[in-house]
Design a protein around this nucleic acid. Sequence first.
DNA 1: CAGTGGTCTAGACCACCTG
DNA 2: AGGTGGTCTAGACCACTGG
Lengths: 253, 253
Amino acid sequence: MEKKNEGASPADPTTPEAIGYKPLYAQVRDRLMRRLVEGEWLPGMLLPSEIELARQLNVSQGTVRKALDSMTADNLLMRRQGRGTYVAEPEESRILFQFFRLSPDQGTPSFPDSRVLSTGHAKPTPTETEALRLEKGDRVFRIERIRSLSDQPILIETITLPARRFPDFDHLTIIPNNLYRLYSERWGITIASAEERLKAIAASARDAAKLGCDTGEPLLLISRVARDLENRPVELRWSRCITREIHYAVNLR
Amino acid sequence: MEKKNEGASPADPTTPEAIGYKPLYAQVRDRLMRRLVEGEWLPGMLLPSEIELARQLNVSQGTVRKALDSMTADNLLMRRQGRGTYVAEPEESRILFQFFRLSPDQGTPSFPDSRVLSTGHAKPTPTETEALRLEKGDRVFRIERIRSLSDQPILIETITLPARRFPDFDHLTIIPNNLYRLYSERWGITIASAEERLKAIAASARDAAKLGCDTGEPLLLISRVARDLENRPVELRWSRCITREIHYAVNLR
DNA sequence: CAGTGGTCTAGACCACCTG
DNA sequence: AGGTGGTCTAGACCACTGG
């Protein structure tokens, strides 16, 4: 009531002095994001209660709530009435809903199986260098795999990772189906968002052989750049998909 | 303070008597939606202020705000600090951002031109009947047109409308480029959401001739069902797009 | 039962727009 | 100057969860 945003935060870029004004709840969000990025709260962990966070940050419960709600809307947190606020986990059902937009024309969506075709280090292509914002001399790790739905091959994908951010990737004995959980558990990298670009292309002879379709058959090309909590590009994925009995679903609001 | 949700709303499905509990702000949203649907507030019009709405509905300003914020998030309203709350209009820049996901690989997105190839009444196909939830005997109106970006044809699309909801469509002398504004201005139909399904297909001989590409060239097929404020399907659109220098963009969060 | 998030209210001040 | 939406606070009660 008597508070006026005077000296509330330690580092104080608060007061509407110049152009750079940020509402208090956005500053709270930024500070919570930093604690998340620095690994103070790991996926699956319970956060302090709203009241406790409000006390820590010296703001009201309502302001903390607005910050937490915004992070929940971005799928970074999960809130359960009566239980508390948890850090979101990259489990399959959530990934399926959030990052996998392919559904069978009839029936319900499900998570595809994967079979790795090849892996290895390489010098990045110019496209990869630009998409992943690599620096001179950086190397990449590539994975090629086929994914199937009920034993039908539906897509072949090439995944490119910056070697610098995934040390010892080649020491892995097996590469799991759910890569985003692997990134999280082994390197502490959380995939928070992604941009996809879709095109129709003709199947190359090589892809056609692997997918068991005709050369030249129309395929849906999905180019994905996935980003971490700090919005840095982390993964480039290039999927070529047979869409005879499958479609890519988008909701426009 | 002394209020306890007792007899607040005229028709009162409120009290957590059985299973059907709805928070007050959701009830407020429903009532505002009904006034919107019934045409009390037309696109571009200024709504009453939060304080006035709170007085009318006998709830607090904060509850009205939560309802208005939710409708704003769905692109139904537009709020401007110091001005007021307006009903969203289907102008090109908004439609471009909300419903048109095709961008040039290089350069900034823009709204394509249209050239109508044919129009006419028809008996609906089974696919159209299902997608538009038509009843027995209902007829449809179809439009076929080519759309171009900087004089390059990029897609050919077939649009199907239920004749019952668009009376006298065939009396139109010209069919404008921005159809959603036409639906709004002439029939009071607001397109509020849409679902799209994407596939890669081979260009038919007919489409190839119209688009000036080769038969069999891979095209991106976009099947859209557009819905009104009450979530009823209103338009079926079937676009076949050349994606040589264009892509369909999706953001996943 | 105590503790959590979810809803609702009331009131203050701020940033922005218009006249 | 006066009105609008945007932010922030404080406090009450509700619904849900777990011990």
